[in-house]
């Protein structure tokens, strides 16, 4: 419950108009700050939702795979479709969809699924996650054209580089998890 309250406060904070305008003014902040924070908001809601609707999660996400897939679909939509960010800025309904989809269709299923996944499932998810970031970085670094109407090419390249670093970060996390596997399972 406590987590859900923190999540709610954070959610409202992210919705404040000045916060939205700052977090969407720079491409990197938009994709690598606002969006992950919305996912984290969803994660904070998860325990409360699971307590309220235990049957739902049990029925639809028994082994964690459907939840992870849903998370990836939402992730890929927001990260790999450049016009998604444009639409979010210019169209109110898409912006609302962003604020609902990232917490509830990405954050909630991810947290619910993670513990349910097998070790191999988690590894696959982490590697896929790194690959998504890798492709995103390629897309934004290599593209000679402006991909979003709202962001200039320099911002686009910066986004590409941050994505590459994020991919490296995730890979390092994965590699070390191979070494200290037994400890995390204690």
């Amino acid at each position: 419950m406590k987590q859900a309250i923190y999540g709610l406060i954070f959610y409202i904070f992210l919705m404040l108009p000045p916060v939205i305008s700052i977090s969407e003014s720079i491409m990197v902040l938009h994709m690598h700050m606002q969006m992950p924070l919305l996912v984290i908001v969803g994660m904070l809601f998860t325990p409360y939702l699971k307590e309220k609707f235990p049957g739902f999660f049990e029925k639809w996400n028994t082994n964690g795979v459907p939840g992870t897939l849903l998370f990836f679909i939402i992730l890929i939509y927001w990260m790999m479709v450049p016009r998604a960010m444009d639409d979010a800025i210019s169209t109110l309904s898409v912006e609302i969809f962003k604020f609902i989809s990232l917490p509830f269709l990405a954050g909630v299923p991810l947290r619910d699924s993670w513990k349910k996944l097998s070790k191999r499932g988690q590894s696959t998810a982490l590697i896929s996650f790194a690959i998504v970031y890798g492709i995103v970085s390629l897309l934004y670094i290599a593209s000679p054209n402006q991909l979003c109407n709202n962001y200039i090419v320099a911002e686009q390249k910066a986004l590409g580089w941050t994505s590459l670093f994020t991919a490296i970060g995730i890979l390092i996390y994965y590699v070390q998890s191979l070494f200290i596997e037994e400890e995390l399972e204690e």
């Binding site: 320099a154 911002e155 910066a158 670093f165 070494f179």
Partner: peptide, 24 residues
């Protein structure tokens, strides 16, 4: 104990702080 997590966060925060201004 999870140094990998620390390293991953270090890289990500470093990228957040520097990738954008350096690219510019």
């Amino acid at each position: 104990k999870n140094w990998g997590l620390v390293v991953a966060l270090l890289i990500i925060i470093l990228a957040m702080g520097y990738a954008m201004p350096l690219t510019e």
